Simulated scan of single mutants.
Amino acid sequence: MTNHLNFNVYHPNCPSRLFFDNMADKWVLFILDTLKVQAQHFNSLKKAIIGISPKVLSQKLKMLERDGFIDRKTLDTRPIKVEYSLTPLGKELAETAFQFKLWAESHMQYVLDAQRKYDESSQ
């Protein structure tokens, strides 16, 4: 039986705060959502996630691998290719990221309307 620790995200020294720091990043959410569909190579990810730099993509992939959300597999090809895929934990988190995506796409007009209304009233 696993002894689960009690984590409290509101406590300043709780490690779950670092999780929120890492996950509250648009690139992480985009990577998770992109890998949700299928495993991909680095260049495929770079093409699919418009605007991400190779350096940032590499950093985020390493972080996600370290945290147990993605697997990195070196393929025995010429030239050698690396493939990234979601772990079971990553798949679960990707579903949450996908819900954020759906929410943003279906509610963005309300946000834009609220911003416009606020900006007009504060002039």
Rank of each mutant, 00 (worst) to 15 (best):
residue 50 I to C: 09
residue 8 N to H: 14
residue 42 F to T: 03
residue 95 E to I: 05
residue 10 Y to N: 15
residue 7 F to H: 13
residue 37 V to W: 06
residue 89 L to C: 05
residue 74 T to P: 02
residue 41 H to G: 14
residue 103 W to A: 07
residue 43 N to R: 13
residue 119 D to G: 00
residue 105 E to P: 01
residue 52 I to H: 05
residue 52 I to K: 08
residue 117 K to I: 04
residue 70 I to D: 04
residue 45 L to H: 05
residue 118 Y to M: 02
residue 76 D to R: 10
residue 2 T to Q: 14
residue 97 A to T: 06
residue 85 S to N: 05
residue 72 R to F: 01
residue 31 I to Y: 10
residue 83 E to V: 07
residue 100 F to C: 09
residue 16 S to R: 14
residue 101 K to W: 03
residue 68 G to T: 05
residue 26 K to L: 13
residue 100 F to Y: 11
residue 19 F to S: 10
residue 71 D to Q: 12
residue 87 T to L: 08
residue 60 K to M: 09
residue 11 H to A: 15
residue 5 L to S: 14
residue 112 L to D: 09
residue 52 I to A: 11
residue 105 E to G: 01
residue 73 K to W: 06
residue 120 E to M: 02
residue 83 E to A: 10
residue 30 F to P: 00
residue 74 T to G: 02
residue 12 P to L: 14
residue 44 S to P: 05
residue 23 M to N: 13
residue 36 K to S: 10
residue 21 D to W: 15
residue 27 W to N: 11
residue 109 Q to A: 03
residue 69 F to K: 04
residue 103 W to Q: 07
residue 8 N to R: 15
residue 38 Q to H: 13
residue 88 P to Q: 03
residue 41 H to T: 07
residue 108 M to E: 05
residue 36 K to E: 12
residue 65 E to C: 11
residue 123 Q to T: 00
residue 103 W to Y: 02
residue 13 N to C: 14
residue 55 K to V: 13
residue 14 C to R: 12
residue 99 Q to Y: 00
residue 50 I to N: 04
residue 96 T to C: 01
residue 99 Q to A: 03
residue 10 Y to L: 15
residue 106 S to T: 07
residue 121 S to V: 00
residue 2 T to C: 07
residue 53 S to R: 11
residue 59 Q to L: 13
residue 99 Q to L: 06
residue 68 G to C: 10
residue 10 Y to W: 15
residue 41 H to L: 10
residue 113 D to Q: 09
residue 103 W to L: 09
residue 26 K to Q: 12
residue 93 L to P: 02
residue 114 A to Q: 04
residue 66 R to D: 15
residue 47 K to T: 12
residue 51 G to A: 13
residue 26 K to I: 12
residue 1 M to P: 13
residue 82 V to F: 03
residue 67 D to G: 11
residue 3 N to D: 11
residue 97 A to V: 02
residue 102 L to S: 00
residue 97 A to D: 02
residue 121 S to Q: 04
residue 77 T to I: 04
residue 98 F to D: 01
residue 53 S to M: 11
residue 104 A to K: 06
residue 90 G to S: 03
residue 6 N to F: 12
residue 112 L to C: 01
residue 116 R to K: 08
residue 82 V to W: 05
residue 66 R to H: 14
residue 4 H to K: 09
residue 123 Q to R: 05
residue 67 D to Y: 12
residue 17 R to Y: 12
residue 67 D to C: 05
residue 6 N to C: 11
residue 33 D to G: 06
residue 34 T to Q: 13
residue 62 K to A: 13
residue 106 S to M: 00
residue 84 Y to S: 02
residue 95 E to N: 04
residue 19 F to W: 14
residue 4 H to Y: 12
residue 74 T to A: 09
residue 108 M to C: 02
residue 81 K to Y: 10
residue 118 Y to V: 00
residue 28 V to P: 05
residue 63 M to W: 04
residue 119 D to I: 01
residue 98 F to T: 00
residue 84 Y to D: 02
residue 53 S to W: 11
residue 4 H to S: 06
residue 87 T to C: 07
residue 16 S to T: 15
residue 37 V to F: 09
residue 14 C to E: 15
residue 75 L to H: 05
residue 46 K to Q: 13
residue 63 M to C: 06
residue 60 K to W: 07
residue 70 I to K: 04
residue 27 W to T: 14
residue 94 A to R: 01
residue 35 L to S: 08
residue 92 E to T: 00
residue 32 L to K: 05
residue 52 I to G: 06
residue 56 V to G: 08
residue 66 R to L: 13
residue 112 L to R: 07
residue 58 S to L: 12
residue 80 I to L: 09
